[in-house]
């Protein structure tokens, strides 16, 4: 729960490099440093090769008017691609759609995940069964999950309208119903992970704390908000951070369920459609850079907000 756990390496290494003879110690430190770099270099190189290099390439491409179908017509256009994207109402609509999906899925995942974690933590019998069942959606391929939900709701193969007595409602014929099914599928697929994460956090909260609160007459609701949730703050923040960034990058489900029809296109989908679908690499690269910048700013904002939170929590 503390940051000390992040630095065990430092403590162990310090313990070993005892103040022995000066020259030998620095020699050993140098060898250790070299070995450290040698062991991490391959992993670092692979990660850089496939993220940093293409990202710089995207930055470069975004300054050109460049279509794969017309390589000869490639010409530098400065920042015009960005101007084109930012002036296009479609970009802003896709941003809004993506934000709506984040706002509809992440809070539900957290509440449902917490409920499932509480269930698994508290139940006397059947915990293993619940956990096993929840691991199934976690393991399933996102495309399969999206297909299952699409075929369950679609008006030619689906059973959902029959079960709910909705007649011939065309779920994928309207924007909000389509978004609803997309979000439901995302929630189903990702809540199990959230709940397992929160369960691990919940297990770290000492039972005595809650028992003491109960003795003092706190209701179950008060215990949850005043004792349990504050004690697992760190886990909650990690869950929020990762789920928000993940939800903002939503792509697979939309591809399978609507292919962006009924104005359900996300920012990721727009970038994909420009680059791979229309082979407009220049314009697509500009969308990619903007997507990258939005993810980066969300990450920085959340990390910053959480740091303040954590500092306050420690101070209190």
């Amino acid at each position: 729960m503390t940051t000390a756990a992040t630095d065990p390496a430092r403590s162990s290494a310090h313990a070993r490099s005892s103040p022995a003879a000066g020259a030998r110690a620095t020699d050993r430190a140098r060898r250790e440093r070299r070995l450290g770099w040698a062991l991490t270099a391959p992993a670092l190189a692979v990660m850089l090769l496939v993220t940093a290099y293409p990202m710089l390439d995207a930055l470069w491409l975004s300054l050109f008017s460049y279509r794969l179908t017309d390589p000869g017509g490639r010409e530098p256009v400065g920042l015009r691609n960005y101007a084109v994207v930012l002036a296009d109402p479609l970009w802003w609509e896709d941003v809004r759609t993506t934000v709506v999906i984040v706002l509809l899925t992440v809070p539900v995942e957290l509440v449902l995940g917490m409920a499932l974690a509480t269930l698994m933590h508290g139940i006397a019998r059947g915990r293993g069964v619940v956990r096993t069942a929840l691991l199934v959606p976690y393991g399933i391929v996102t495309v399969v999950s999206a297909f299952a939900w699409r075929s369950a709701f679609s008006d030619d193969t689906g059973f959902v309208n029959g079960w709910l007595g909705l007649g011939d409602l065309a779920w994928f014929g309207h924007r909000w119903t389509s978004l609803g099914v997309i979000c439901a599928s995302e929630i189903w697929k990702t809540t199990p992970f959230t709940s397992l994460l929160l369960l691990a956090g919940l297990a770290q909260v000492p039972d005595e704390l809650r028992e003491a609160a109960q003795m003092d007459g706190a209701s179950a609701w008060q215990r949850l908000w005043r004792v349990t949730l504050p004690s697992m703050r760190r886990t909650l923040l990690v869950a929020i951070l990762f789920r928000t960034l993940d939800a903002y990058r939503v792509f697979d489900s939309i591809f399978v369920m609507t292919a962006g029809a009924q104005r359900t296109e996300s920012v990721s989908f727009l970038a994909y459609r420009q680059m791979i679908g229309r082979t407009a690499l220049g314009l697509g690269a500009a969308v990619s850079i903007l997507l990258f910048l939005s993810v980066l700013s969300i990450a920085l904002l959340l990390v910053r907000a959480f740091r303040i939170e954590l500092v306050q929590a420690r101070g209190a």
Binding site: A9, P54, F242, A271, L291, F292
Partner: peptide, 25 residues
């Protein structure tokens, strides 16, 4: 091991985990 690069590796791993894959496709 004690060497300066380790923060770099951990930071890099975290950044890649948050990276929007579509951007580099």
């Amino acid at each position: 091991l004690e060497f300066r690069g380790k923060r770099l590796v951990l930071g890099m791993a975290l950044s890649v985990a948050m990276f929007p894959v579509i951007s580099i496709v």
